[in-house]
Design a protein around this nucleic acid. Structure first.
Length: 528
DNA sequence: TCCATGC
């Protein structure tokens, strides 16, 4: 079987073909990795026999592997050798593939005298053999990423202090807290011991998939606390939760707790994914505090972990007062948040219709084979409107937003994950955490805005959401591009505020210039 | 005119 570059790829299914074809590695990145890590050189050397597995040193959520493992075993996956990998050279900007995106400094503030040694290997963390097997065999990790190396000893070692941790998009945050939960749970105790709260059902689902995969050999049971048809009707009738790990959304978790079906007395660890949003005034603050208080009432020593790629100053301040005083914290400067892994562009459009034309006549045409695309819009209504416009024009796109039923939402996400759809229109529902490695293109049909009560006030961009949206492309250190569509002075001001905030400059692509789009995609490493 | 999350 040949991939699109004519290289031999041994695979079993067509879905697998698409995935592998997209899963390109840069030769240079592999070489650099060999130089940087003599200990793993044998594993990646071309002379190794049998052919080396394409392993991962670190990862955030890993979903494609979940389904891939059902069609292809680990050994089949390892039949991809370096010859089948696409060789790409980018003289201007060496690709950062498979290098840690968090090379930059992480500001570490530890509390008390406890010394923490960064974990160079997973073996340094006193993990159970079953968990280690999950990391190597199921997740195919080699060693901890930077954020994992620093945070895991803080999470796992007594006195189990609370932790606020910021890390780049796609740098492996999920692994930090999933591993933390799996490791701190006692499999022999049949009661909830770890709880994770997420802002969307999609994220809860994704996280529990990662947990089940990583914990495959541990025998630890898990439950996803999101609304479904079955549990919506009969919470009162169902048995109390005995699973050791529960991951879900605030409403359902609160509900299960109030029905006394989810006991908090044995909880050892409470995680807030996307913690800044979970504790923001206009976010889930009330729900989150309520859940924390419910736990505190019956349980005085539950460790709290707060993870996100973003913490603005207001929420950072509040968050620090939310957890115990002797907590540890890890922060990254906003200028160093991995915006540079993904190339950003802006396109001036004369009006809304021009935005749609830019999308279909230029970005879709020129970017046809660069991978999957997410188009972000600001409102549910514009999601539907844009969806209809593009479908009417004959394009195969789908859209997702919170007003859809959960079955429909699940179906649309599944189709996108399976690669059946190439383009997905979404509200900020999918802005955070959604991990789909084939997404190389993000289009901001609308720029993210902060909600302001007053009409008179100058509109402000939501820089945190912007960063999260951008982070949907270039997962796992891959390449990516973002096109920001701008059509009036308001957009222009929002864009320049975003540029100032991150200290970057976003290059312009002329709306009608095929050459500009091609150049942009080439620069982003998505086009030859 | 937000966006999520649930009654």
């Amino acid at each position: 079987m040949l991939d699109e570059d004519g290289n031999k790829v041994k695979i079993t299914t067509t879905t697998r073909t698409r995935k592998l074809a997209k899963a390109r590695l840069s030769k240079r990145a592999v070489e650099r990795r060999i130089m940087a890590e003599p200990s793993t050189a044998a594993a990646t050397s071309t002379t190794a026999d049998p052919p080396p597995p394409v392993t991962k040193r670190w990862a955030d959520e890993e979903d494609e592997e979940t389904e891939a493992s059902s069609t292809a075993t680990a050994t089949e996956a390892s039949s991809v050798n370096l010859d089948s990998l696409k060789i790409e050279d980018n003289d201007e900007n060496p690709p950062k593939l498979l290098d840690d995106p968090d090379d930059s400094s992480i500001q570490k503030v530890t509390s008390g005298e406890t010394p923490y040694t960064s974990a160079a290997k997973f073996e340094d963390l006193n993990l159970s053999p079953e968990l280690l097997k999950g990391l190597y065999v199921e997740m195919k990790f080699q060693k901890p990423s930077k954020i994992q190396a620093i945070s895991l000893p803080m999470i796992l070692n007594p006195p189990h202090r609370d932790l606020i941790a910021q890390a780049h998009n796609g740098s492996g945050k999920t692994t930090c807290f999933v591993l933390g939960m799996l490791s701190r749970v006692d499999p022999k105790v049949q009661a909830p011991q770890a709880l994770c709260v997420c802002p969307t059902r999609e994220l809860a689902n994704q996280n529990i998939e990662v947990l089940r995969k990583m914990g495959k050999y541990t025998g630890i049971a898990s439950e996803c606390a999101v609304p479904t048809d079955s549990n919506a009707l009969s919470i009162a009738k169902r048995a109390p939760i005995m699973a050791q790990v529960v991951i879900g959304t605030p409403g359902t978790i609160k509900k299960w707790m109030s029905f006394k079906k989810l006991g908090a007395s044995r909880l050892k660890i409470l995680v807030f994914d996307e913690a800044d949003q979970m504790l923001a005034e206009d976010g889930f603050k009330d729900d989150s505090l309520r859940i924390m208080k419910e736990i505190e009432k019956v349980n005085s020593n539950c460790q709290v972990l707060l993870f996100s790629a973003t913490f603005n100053d207001t929420v950072k301040n509040f968050v620090s007062r939310t957890v115990k005083e002797d907590h540890n914290k890890l922060f990254v400067k906003k200028e160093e948040l991995s915006l540079d892994a993904v190339k950003q562009y802006k396109v001036y459009c004369s009006d809304e219709l021009a935005k749609i034309e830019v999308i279909k006549d230029y970005i879709f045409e020129i970017g046809e084979n660069v991978g999957q695309t997410i188009i972000f819009v600001r409102t549910r209504n514009s999601a539907q409107m844009l969806h209809k416009s593009l479908v009417d024009m004959g394009y195969e796109v789908t859209s997702i937003q919170g007003a859809l039923g959960h079955d429909e939402r699940e179906k649309i996400v599944k189709e996108f994950r399976d690669g059946l759809t190439q383009v997905l229109i979404s509200t900020d529902l999918l802005a955070r955490g959604f991990d789909q490695q084939q997404v190389n293109l993000v289009i901001n049909y609308d720029l993210p805005m902060k909600h302001t009560a007053s009409y008179t006030r100058e509109p402000e961009p939501d820089c945190e959401v912007y960063l999260h949206r951008v982070g949907r492309a270039g997962r796992f250190g891959r390449k990516g591009a973002v096109f920001n569509l701008i059509c009036d002075q308001k957009d222009e001001r929002l864009m320049s505020k975003i540029e100032n905030h991150f200290g970057t400059r976003v290059a312009e692509v002329r709306a009608q210039s095929v050459e500009d789009y091609k150049g942009a995609l080439k620069e982003a490493g998505l086009l030859q």
